[in-house]
Amino acid sequence: MSTDNQTPSADDADPASDAAELQALRERVDELEASLSELDDADEQQKLTIVATQGSFDMAYPPLILGSTAAAFGWDVVVFHTFWGLDILHEKKSKNLKLSAVGNPNMPMPNALAAIPGMDRMATRMMEKKIDENGTATIEELIDLSLESGVDLQACQMTIELMDYDEDDFYDGVTTGVGAATALQHMAESDIQLLV
């Protein structure tokens, strides 16, 4: 009995409840659209994480060039320096990075000759001269530029201790006290991850 009475009354209320439902749906769609555009905005800034593991003169360039250029794009950039890559951030050592003449097939000399003491220094000096002539920036200039443009240059804490370095040995503005977990976290958040 009571159900018979309820059914027609629910039918009577239909136009009003439909309108209310429609209104609620519209509001929900608006809400979702707003949160979606927020997400799009948040996603707009690209993030790049580079892990720099090499400390030879030639291998110091790629992470610095890519990092500073990415910063010019307005990207959020982290370069995590570990093992020999740490020398790039070491104020004194960065000015003395060497190009290896041995085992480098691009060097116009046989390995037996390249192994002679002083050859690395000579190869480095030749490269430095070419870099100067070409108008390519020095490593120090690129580090300054990177820091200036907001690149987060990080020095792996474990390697600092392993190499017996001191936190004061690094350029001002270099982030210390970070480890693999921090690096992984940045990699997970990044659009691009590179190991150099």
């Binding site: 060039i65 250029t69 910063a71 010019a72 794009f73 070409n134 108008g135 390519t136 920036a137």
Partner: peptide, 14 residues
């Protein structure tokens, strides 16, 4: 003038 990659870009941005 006389500067090569990445300087033209980085300086332009600045």
């Amino acid at each position: 003038k006389g500067q090569s990659c990445p300087m033209p870009i980085v300086k332009t941005k600045q």
